[in-house]
Design a protein around this nucleic acid. Structure first.
Lengths: 214, 214
DNA sequence: TTGCAAATGTGAGGATTACTCATATTTATG
DNA sequence: CATAAATATGAGTAATCCTCACATTTGCAA
């Protein structure tokens, strides 16, 4: 799905004034350049320090063009965030799709955590975006939706492994486990690497205990 | 915090240029009024929407006086946050101080979680401040330090209950459990009440499993 | 091709807001 | 009382997001 994402947002989280979505080849390329510029600037200094003027200059467009396609600054960050979630959801779905037994879940989940951790460590943009999640209502909602979607993949597996368990309890467990994973990642990258590794390992153990040992 | 700040953001998150600390009775009262005004405004609209001009007006002081005692906007939020942490640390230390056995830990921890949850639900200021934690480096460090301090109280208990366990593992477990508690709270208050209750209950069960069942 | 509407591009300027600083006033102190 | 230190003031500065009136390009039907 590379169509323009449909949810610009405002201070109260409501939808902002609509912006044109690029239909011509020319503008689609320019929008790509804008996002690339934003991504580079966020990687360098963080999204807070990203200036709209810099994004425009780096993308080789005018300020006006930027606002032609993005209602406000946060919409740019949101667009980048949406790409990350779409990508990672596909990856997660694939990893959990064929899990058939407890041992398979153990392996798949363990690997997912490792992948996520490496991603957080290696991707400054992702790190920055998910750090700002709590402060921005639209981003928080995106992350919640993402988390719920990912939790659903886990729920599907759990229902197969424990068909007699209460479905609501499984939902709650999966959602909580997933959200805590993201919290553990954020924590892990904000302390030194050694302690971060220990924390991620501890999380993994804790989560698996919850998921596998009924 | 706010995208439109005029002065360059302190990228390192360190505290800005020092300000006078109130020595006279008169100024101490005024500082209290400033904090009270800020608190009320944060409760009403969130710290992001809090305007320095409004704080000054509501406190009955001039803008200049505000900056006499607080180097910048974030310092006001930080000062409020520090009060909350100091208060809650005392509460936590008291609750865990006399824990002597597994059942005692179970009771004390369970009660602490309940207290925290109620606090999060009832205190919009606290909620707002800890939500912005991820975006503000100084706040994040305060929260990390607070979490470590609280985890230490847990570690002290765990060392008593499981004297043969690896101390580093206990530290890691306690720190992670505590941070996840805060993450669980934040999550719980951002969904509807019923699901929030379920999530907190699930967290409590998960944490106790980790803390009590070796 | 030509004409025209829709899409796209532009950047100076409006509006907001955190923060400064020269100056005035109050308090503490010898 | 004199003097310095602390405190108070608010108009002004600077940074930055975003708008808007107008210019240019593109798609397309006649």
């Amino acid at each position: 799905m590379e169509g323009r994402s449909a949810a610009p947002h405002q201070q109260d989280g409501s939808v902002a004034s609509p912006r044109r979505s690029p239909t011509q080849q020319r503008s689609r390329e320019r929008v790509e350049r804008m996002l690339a510029a934003a991504s580079a600037l966020i990687a360098a200094q963080g999204s807070d320090a990203m200036r709209m003027g810099e994004v425009a200059e780096r993308a080789g467009v005018s300020i006006g063009s930027l606002y032609q396609f993005f209602p406000d600054k946060r919409a740019i960050v949101w667009a980048l965030a949406e790409r990350y979630t779409a990508e990672s959801q596909a990856c997660i779905a694939a990893a959990l799709k064929d899990v058939a037994d407890a041992e398979g879940l153990r392996r798949a989940f363990s690997e997912l955590v490792d992948i996520y951790y490496r991603l957080f460590l290696a991707e400054p943009v992702m790190r920055d975006i998910w750090s700002g999640t709590q402060a921005d209502k639209a981003l928080r909602e995106l992350e919640l939706a993402d988390s719920r979607a990912n939790a659903e993949f886990l729920v599907a597996v759990l229902k197969r492994l424990r068909p007699d368990a209460d479905p609501v309890a499984l939902e709650t467990t999966a959602f909580l486990v997933w959200q805590m994973g993201e919290a553990a990642m954020r924590l892990a990258i904000s302390v030194d690497r050694q302690e971060g590794d220990r924390l991620v390992a501890a999380y993994k153990r804790m989560a698996l205990r919850e998921l596998v040992d009924a």
